[in-house]
């Protein structure tokens, strides 16, 4: 079934929208959650929650790209889930490694609370992404949006792991310079 037909089912409050979404995207969404959580049970819960959120949000939302929309909900859900694991010792998941790696891209500042609003940061990130080549953008988002393992990102970007690593390093440096240039301090 085409994405727009599934979206239409949501809009009509037809519960088969959930089943169609599951049929088409469950594997895809599970992978996103799993990359962040490294826990099958939690991932399953997050993905199930995604369908519920989709049901709640459509209408009024009418996503043009359903996969991306559901993927975004899953990503948010998984990150929230990870945050809730307060009792779990940090360290080990790709998400956590990515957080650490991105630390170096943020200009240091003594007043992080005065940083620009989330919306502005997103806008700057979009502008920064626009300056990257499609390959570099795929590398960066594959790693930091989808949390794909370095080896996997390197593979689908058509490069060696070492090259991917060094490219990511350069992109992070460039992001830092870009944010500094825009006067952004986190």
């Amino acid at each position: 079934m085409e994405d727009q037909e599934i979206v239409e089912l949501y809009w009509k409050r037809d519960e088969s929208a959930l089943e169609r979404s599951r049929e088409k995207y469950h594997g895809y969404l599970s992978r996103i959650a799993q990359q962040i959580l490294y826990d099958r049970e939690d991932s399953e819960e997050v993905v199930n929650d995604t369908y519920f959120k989709a049901w709640q949000s459509m209408p009024p939302q009418r996503p043009g790209k359903l996969a991306i929309y559901l993927g975004r909900l899953t990503r948010h859900g998984a990150i929230d889930c990870l945050r809730r694991r307060t009792s779990q010792k940090r360290g080990g998941t790709i998400y956590e490694v990515c957080v650490e790696e991105l630390e170096e891209s943020v200009p240091s500042g003594e007043t992080p609370q005065q940083a620009m609003e989330e919306k502005l940061l997103v806008q700057l990130l979009n502008q920064f992404l626009e300056t990257l080549s499609p390959q570099a953008r795929a590398l960066f988002l594959g790693r930091y949006y989808y949390f794909d393992p370095l080896r996997e990102v390197a593979r689908y970007c058509g490069m060696g792991e070492g090259q991917a690593k060094s490219q990511l390093f350069r992109i992070r440096k460039r992001l830092k310079a870009y944010l500094e240039q825009e006067g952004f301090v986190v």
Binding site: Y95, C98, E118, L125, L129, A138, G142, Y156
Partner: peptide
């Protein structure tokens, strides 16, 4: 955490960029 904030903001980037990457991820 600074990195966490960036990762969170990345969650809101333009869906066209995400769609391009997503397409690539699905290629055998």
């Amino acid at each position: 955490m600074k990195g966490e904030r960036l990762l969170h903001a990345l969650g809101e980037v333009d869906e066209d960029y995400l769609a391009q990457v997503d397409k690539l991820r699905r290629i055998p």
